[in-house]
């Protein structure tokens, strides 16, 4: 009996889209992390993470709460250091250059490596249009074709049709899912090479989540995306590669990183298998 071809397992979901091969696109050489450790005060939270992110791919970071996924991506764009007492070791190489090298302008790094947060956080004092272009203002950049950029970013974030008639309304007047797409549009306006997404859909309803996942698939044509998610279905749906993080009470470690269809169909590590099959976490 033929039923609808609804994918039944995570592996099927992951297989449903073609995985991008690394290094096929001229988007720079991507991002590499070498021996990343992180501390909060004396608390060692992340141990020896080595991961490569090929340009133009989507990588999902999965794992139970408290395993250091978010901390890890925050070391990539140097947001980690805002927390008092935070420290890190290792190197983050963007196009081969260490973002922690002495003399690096940290604001430039954050322009190249954008970030979308868990909770939508548009600037409430600004209009929708101003929100999208806020990154340019904040980093004191000038552009001539503001209107084009505005439309392009909202279009790519999948929000243009919903807000094109009310660009002068305040950012806070949008729904949660729209606000998050507004935040994505805002991150795109400064044209980052890499986009970090820290559980971007965890506060959203399924419909908005779907829209954002579509957006991620589109964006990966032009940038490298790293997404932290607790939703394994989401990892299977959007990512080319998946890395599994775990903490056994000590600092968080990366257990396994593979192409997404492999990690869900034949995980190499027993712990990964237990997690992706839902035995814990």
């Amino acid at each position: 009996m033929e039923t609808t071809t609804k994918p039944s397992s995570l592996a099927d979901v992951a297989n449903a889209h073609v995985q991008k091969a690394p290094g096929t696109r001229a988007l720079g050489t991507g991002l590499e992390t070498r021996g990343i450790h992180a501390w909060f005060g004396k608390n060692h939270v992340l141990s020896d993470i080595n991961l490569d992110f090929a340009a133009g791919t989507v990588t999902a970071l999965i794992g139970p709460s408290g395993c250091g996924k978010s901390t890890f991506i925050r070391t990539i764009n140097r947001m980690h250091e805002f927390i008092p007492g935070a420290a890190m070791a290792g190197e983050v190489l963007l196009d081969g250059r260490d973002v922690y090298a002495a003399g690096t302008d940290v604001t430039k790094i954050r322009l190249q490596i954008g970030m979308v947060f868990q909770k939508p956080n548009p600037f409430p004092s600004m209009t929708i249009g101003e929100n999208v272009l806020s990154g340019l203002k904040l980093s004191q950049q000038k552009v001539s074709n503001k209107d084009e950029l505005l439309e392009e970013c909202l279009e790519r974030a999948g929000l243009w049709n919903e807000v094109k008639d009310r660009l002068g309304a305040h950012g806070g007047s949008l729904s949660g899912g729209q606000q998050q797409r507004l935040c994505i549009a805002r991150a795109l306006a400064v044209r980052p090479q890499v986009l970090l997404m820290d559980e971007p859909c965890s506060a959203l309803d399924p419909g908005s989540t779907l829209r954002i996942e579509e957006t991620i698939r589109h964006l990966s044509d032009t940038m490298t995306i790293i997404i932290v998610t607790h939703n394994m279905q989401q990892a299977a749906r959007v990512s080319d590669y998946t890395a599994f993080f775990l903490s056994d009470g000590g600092p968080g470690q990366m257990i396994e990183a593979s192409p997404t269809n492999e990690i869900f169909s034949r995980p190499r590590d027993k712990r990964t298998e237990n997690y992706v099959t839902g035995r814990f976490g």
Binding site: F82, T107, F123, S139, Q140
Partner: peptide, 16 residues
Amino acid sequence: DRIQAAYALGATRWAM
């Protein structure tokens, strides 16, 4: 969260 959003967009402290 908004302070972080501003920094993540490449803001200097004064711009934030």
